[in-house]
Design a protein around this nucleic acid. Sequence first.
DNA 1: AAAAATGTTCCGGTAAACGGAATTTCCGGA
DNA 2: TCCGGAAATTCCGTTTACCGGAACATTTTT
Lengths: 267, 267
Amino acid sequence: MPDGRNAQVQTIDRAARVLRAIASGPSEGLRLVDVTDGLGLGKATAHRLLRGLADVGFVAFSETTKRYALGFEIYALGAAAQRFRIVDLARPALARLAAKTRDTVYLSVRDGDHALCVDRCTGEYPIRTLTLDVGDRRPLGVGAGSLALLAFQTEADIARILRDDHAMRAQFDGFSSDALGDMVRRSRATGHAFNDGYIVSAMAAIGVPVLDPDGRAVAALSIAAIRERMQAPRSDELVALLSAEAEELSQLLTAGGGKTLKTEEFS
Amino acid sequence: MPDGRNAQVQTIDRAARVLRAIASGPSEGLRLVDVTDGLGLGKATAHRLLRGLADVGFVAFSETTKRYALGFEIYALGAAAQRFRIVDLARPALARLAAKTRDTVYLSVRDGDHALCVDRCTGEYPIRTLTLDVGDRRPLGVGAGSLALLAFQTEADIARILRDDHAMRAQFDGFSSDALGDMVRRSRATGHAFNDGYIVSAMAAIGVPVLDPDGRAVAALSIAAIRERMQAPRSDELVALLSAEAEELSQLLTAGGGKTLKTEEFS
DNA sequence: AAAAATGTTCCGGTAAACGGAATTTCCGGA
DNA sequence: TCCGGAAATTCCGTTTACCGGAACATTTTT
């Protein structure tokens, strides 16, 4: 189940489900029945939604094949979500890290007071530690990547988050304001975050921030593995590898930041 | 006005407007009032829609700044719209062509029986010919890019389109099935489409197909200018430039096509 | 501290969505 | 070419989910 809660506005919830179904379907598109069966909607309802989505350009309908695919407007909206441009830029780095270390590598960005996992790359080591799925959120500070993000926000922000966000960390053990404050301090000192089995005891993770020119974290690279693979000599190598890629990413971001691809406006 | 008709499903129509408003707003996001004022919605209505969109991850809400920005789900959907990957791949080519020729360059893809303009790059020549906006649709065959797309579909498809789509070409002069059939034949023979003022009399355009390995057009590059700039010696150069870029793009597509970026599934 | 602007919630009326069923279109097989 | 089944589309009476004015809360400005 993607997100537990559902439906403040029924139509939006359903439309979103439809779009996700189409997105995860074959590239030639879905037929009406595929949507109805997949989502348990009535034919009439699904049809009405699809037509509505087609009217606004979110899906494209092929008269000849009777199939629905994602439309250009969705692509254009996605391209306008500049905050996530880093996913494209970082993908090669993730792939390199996963290949070199054989472990699982994550990319997270800040989303409000949460860390949002926006990409993941799996290495070929046989024991996999898939703690996070793409799209998952964690309170800032909980997890290596999340901690790296938190530790390199502004001091004021960190203070506020430590103070106010206690509730959203309640379900995790060992993330009281004080404990987390210590972790933040250590992370700032060393330049990287270390999660030694705080969440899942058999595994550990390292996170490093991707900094903007002001030294604020705009993203975090992290790597997770079973604890045996995160011990002394290897962990240092991993920190070095991550830091190097993060540094390179920072430069890519500031370099490419200026010449923001300006797709012509609609509206 | 983006698309003339509106509202099969009111909520979807409104939600789409909201998303577009956010997309074309500042990157720090829009406030509730910005949305209400911009779209003429009531406060309660806009608020409900925004919350619904936030619930499904289409917008992200910052508690601290009270601003709404595009959410990760929209980005993920956009990235899943593989058909439009070509836009990113082609952008450098468009930029090069616009710089070299100083004219306006377009990228179009087939969308049903229409050509859909998916990107545009403006050269610095003082007389600009902005016939197409990004997002605009033209019946297949009407316009240089559109004609290039049509001419390199399968023979059966071309025949059907010539036969059946007369109605959608009615508002354009000189695009009867016979006339268009001739244009198609000429385009197939020469490898490029030429539009010598058929639509707007003072201007002309050249289009070339971007072919897949089977020789089917998946996109078209086109360039438009006032007719004076589209005469004999220069037009040949333009055809050569366009063809070269189109060829390169074809190879990029087939090369990059295999290793499709597989972002992990949500479900 | 008051005032203005913005954000959030409430709630009854009603338009808009719902969905079962009828109709039409499409497609594969004989 | 015709037929039968599956899918797509439309119809329409029912009802629910959305609407939006207004009250309330919060934030920002003066």
